[in-house]
């Protein structure tokens, strides 16, 4: 009984929200129907699925470790205090650097960002800057240079960094009233 309760808590949460599981079930059925109707994409779709899932495992492990470390060592109140204490350009810079060095698929970071948003009262602008700065892929620069040359690679990298800050400011303005934070510039 305790096991079932723990499972329900893990997948449905305290509010017992069935919507995500329903969306997944519908998508899964649609997926099966599509690969049955179009047998030509069957093997490719299945290969893609396994490839993505295989690549997700390290990201899952990394995010789990980060979540655990945050839970163990970071007191939500002190984290909130740190983010609140970090103001202006330092927090924008922190959001850009964190975005650039973050790894794994973008959607793996949503739970962590949602948690930071809630516990550290982080403004939407900083989250947007973080998500945009993730477009800078340092390990993939050789590909950009090989295809487009050094000038283009440097120009696009600098442009994305600047745009990440512009996007953050725009989002902060457009989400005004939706932010509960006091650490905006």
């Amino acid at each position: 009984m305790a096991f079932v309760k723990a499972l329900r808590s893990l997948f449905l949460g305290e509010e017992e929200d069935y919507r995500p599981i329903t969306i997944f079930a519908i998508t899964f059925i649609a997926y099966l129907v599509i690969i049955l109707i179009f047998p030509s994409i069957q093997s490719k779709a299945m290969a893609n699925l396994w490839k993505i899932l295989y690549n997700l495992i390290p990201a899952f492990v990394l995010v789990y470790i980060l979540m655990l470390l945050i839970d163990l060592f970071v007191e939500p109140k002190s984290l909130a205090a740190k983010f609140k204490a970090m103001r202006g350009w330092k927090l924008w810079l922190f959001s850009v650097i964190a975005g650039i060095i973050s790894t794994g698929p973008i959607y793996m970071w949503y739970p962590l960002l949602a948690r930071l948003k809630k516990e550290a009262e982080l403004n939407y602008g900083y989250i947007a800057t973080f998500l945009y700065a993730r477009a800078v892929k340092i390990p993939l620069l050789p590909f950009l240079i090989a295809y487009f040359g050094w000038n283009y690679a440097i120009a696009i990298t600098i442009t994305i960094i600047i745009l990440s800050l512009i996007e953050g400011v725009i989002i902060d303005m457009l989400m005004e009233g939706k932010n509960d934070s006091s650490n905006s510039v």
């Binding site: 949460g13 969306i23 779709a45 993505i52 949503y110």
Partner: peptide, 18 residues
Amino acid sequence: SITRPLPIILTVVLALSL
């Protein structure tokens, strides 16, 4: 924190593979 968004993440993965 991982399992709660798992159904949505798996939905995204299915869509991506197609």
